[in-house]
Nucleic acid binder design. Sequence first.
DNA 1: TAGTGGTCTAGACCACCGG
DNA 2: CGGTGGTCTAGACCACTAT
Lengths: 233, 233
Amino acid sequence: MIPKPTNSWIEIRDAIHANILNKTYAAGDKLPRDQDLAQMLGCARSTVQRAMQDLSDRGLVERRRKGGTRIPQDPVTRATLEIPIIRKEVEQKGAVHGYQLINAEMLETPRNIMAGFGLPAPITALRVQALHLADQQPYLLEDRWINIQTVPGVTQIDFARENANEWLLRHKPYDKCDMRFYAIKAGKAEADLLAANLGDALFVIDRTTWINQNPITTVKTIAAPGYQLKTGS
Amino acid sequence: MIPKPTNSWIEIRDAIHANILNKTYAAGDKLPRDQDLAQMLGCARSTVQRAMQDLSDRGLVERRRKGGTRIPQDPVTRATLEIPIIRKEVEQKGAVHGYQLINAEMLETPRNIMAGFGLPAPITALRVQALHLADQQPYLLEDRWINIQTVPGVTQIDFARENANEWLLRHKPYDKCDMRFYAIKAGKAEADLLAANLGDALFVIDRTTWINQNPITTVKTIAAPGYQLKTGS
DNA sequence: TAGTGGTCTAGACCACCGG
DNA sequence: CGGTGGTCTAGACCACTAT
């Protein structure tokens, strides 16, 4: 009688992972079929499948029907970023969140916004500029364009009182989100609003969200000097 | 809801997702038990489980034993970044990758590197500084510290010929990786090496990798002006 | 076309945790 | 304690794709 070890998919995953780390399975190698691995490890095939799903999600193995499971030649580092509501981010640092509306008006979308939205011609959209504070200090500058065709009710909202970041996330869920990260030099406007010096290097996040292929909003968030974005794992 | 003819977990997931998007299930709401959902949708419980696993991974629902499945009050945006080998990144842009070693020497770790490695006292480590090129133009500046206790063989490598980024990823797999992203002003050294102007805003990625709790390497990569990091989804 | 991973099912038991 | 999600199993069929 074979002693039955506890076979959780995590143990199976770690066993396979260990064999990758110690080069038993090296880059380019093909692993045994799931069925054979299951027999070797004394578990069901679906347990191997569950373990492989995790390894595959992390980019540690590549799986193909008929092609089998292989160790990729060039490992890709995958990092998951969790970007909370700005108020929560501030509060998590133990600070008090504040919010100031700078400007809100209807405007024709300039070319770069049209491009982000994937529009062929300009439309009239709601532009909302606002400042987020942490303990009274400038924290994040938000320059947002909202598509009033996708979010018709938005024109009734008083963004002097309601935080646009939060209102949209709560009332307008999205099913697609593009993000990009880069650095800019602080111009006069950013320097004034963020209490930074002219020419300071600022961290920027551009984000565009969509629902059913329709653009909802595109926002450029410029962080005050010293801001760092970190991975959760 | 009438039982559907084909029940893939993706359809089940999308059905539930649709109910979240159209507010049938709103923030704070509790969803039916998996078993009930399975009966309502005419599939097995494990199919609902698979769908929920995906929704949970994306942060669209929160699941707790006994507590049931709920829609989180404050949605968190999750983004997955895929960071390939630098050479591949350059080649994917259709450019030719180049590499130049700037400096490699054994040094005592300064305080900030000790902190990144979680070391109480300084150690002697290998510092490698190198420049990556795209079509002969400066692309990325790499300032790396390698723990020679974790990677003993590394002292034999000629990093004038071997690219440190690639050599480590190929020969020293890791099981933990911390990353942070921020912006800096180009000093004289960075400006010279990256063909940037003094004071330009530069995008920086700090990365530290570990194996079995032992630090392998910590690297600061400074990108040339104009660099943007984008999400895959 | 045949081999391999992906999925679905039904049932059972376990682990966590709210009441 | 009991209810709920998490997992494991065994078997079947499907979908993709390498050969």
